[in-house]
Simulated assay, not measured.
Amino acid sequence: MSEIDSLKAQLESLQSEALESFALAASLSELQQLRVNYLGKKGALTEVLKGVGKLPPQERPVIGQHVNATKTALAAALDGCEASLAVKAKAERIEAERIDVTLPGRSSTSGALHPVQQGLDEMTAIFSQMGFAVAEGPEIENEFHNFDALNIPPEHPARAMHDTFFVKEFAEGEQSEPMLLRTHTSPVQIRAMKRFLEEGHEPPLAVVAPGRVYRCDYDVTHSPMFHQVEVFKVDRDVSMAHLKGVLKHFLSTYFEKEVSIRLRPHYFPFTEPSAEVDIGCVFCAGKGCRICKGSGWIEVLGSGMIHPNVLRSVGIDAEAFSGFAFGLGVERLVMLKKGIPDLRLFFENDVRFLRRMGS
Rank of each mutant, 00 (worst) to 15 (best):
V208L: 04
Q228W: 12
D235Q: 10
F226C: 08
A206D: 10
R215S: 09
A206L: 11
V207N: 03
G211F: 07
K244P: 04
R236P: 10
F226I: 08
S239I: 06
A241C: 11
L243N: 01
S223I: 01
D217F: 00
D235N: 09
L243S: 00
V246I: 13
K233L: 04
S239Q: 07
K233D: 10
D237C: 10
F226T: 08
F226S: 04
M240F: 11
Q228A: 04
Y214L: 15
V238Q: 04
G211D: 13
G211Y: 12
Y218N: 15
Q228C: 06
P210V: 10
A209Q: 13
G245R: 02
R215D: 07
S239R: 06
V231W: 04
E230P: 05
Y218Q: 09
C216I: 07
F226M: 05
V220A: 10
S239D: 07
A241K: 11
R236T: 15
H222E: 02
K244Y: 03
H227N: 13
M240G: 11
V213H: 05
D217V: 00
G245M: 03
R215C: 11
Y214P: 13
S239L: 03
E230H: 03
V213E: 09
V229N: 05
Y214I: 14
T221W: 00
P224I: 10
E230F: 08
S239F: 04
F232Y: 03
P210M: 11
V213M: 06
D217N: 08
G211N: 07
V220E: 06
R215K: 11
H242G: 00
K233V: 06
H227T: 14
D217A: 08
L243F: 02
D237P: 03
V207D: 03
V208K: 01
E230Q: 09
A209T: 15
D235P: 03
D237R: 14
K233G: 02
H222L: 03
C216K: 08
R215V: 12
P210N: 13
S223G: 06
A206I: 14
G245N: 07
A206P: 10
V246S: 00
P224Q: 12
T221Y: 01
H227C: 10
S223H: 06
H222Q: 03
C216M: 08
D217Y: 01
S239Y: 02
V234P: 00
H227D: 12
S239V: 04
R215F: 12
P224N: 12
A209L: 14
D217C: 03
S239A: 07
P210Y: 09
H222P: 03
R236Q: 15
G245Y: 01
P210T: 11
S239C: 05
D235H: 09
F232S: 05
H227K: 12
V229D: 06
S239G: 10
F226L: 04
F226R: 08
Y218V: 08
D237G: 09
F232D: 02
V229P: 05
V207W: 04
M240H: 06
R212S: 14
T221F: 02
V238R: 07
F226Y: 15
V231E: 02
V246N: 00
S239H: 04
V213T: 12
A206E: 12
V234H: 01
P210I: 09
R212A: 14
D219Y: 00
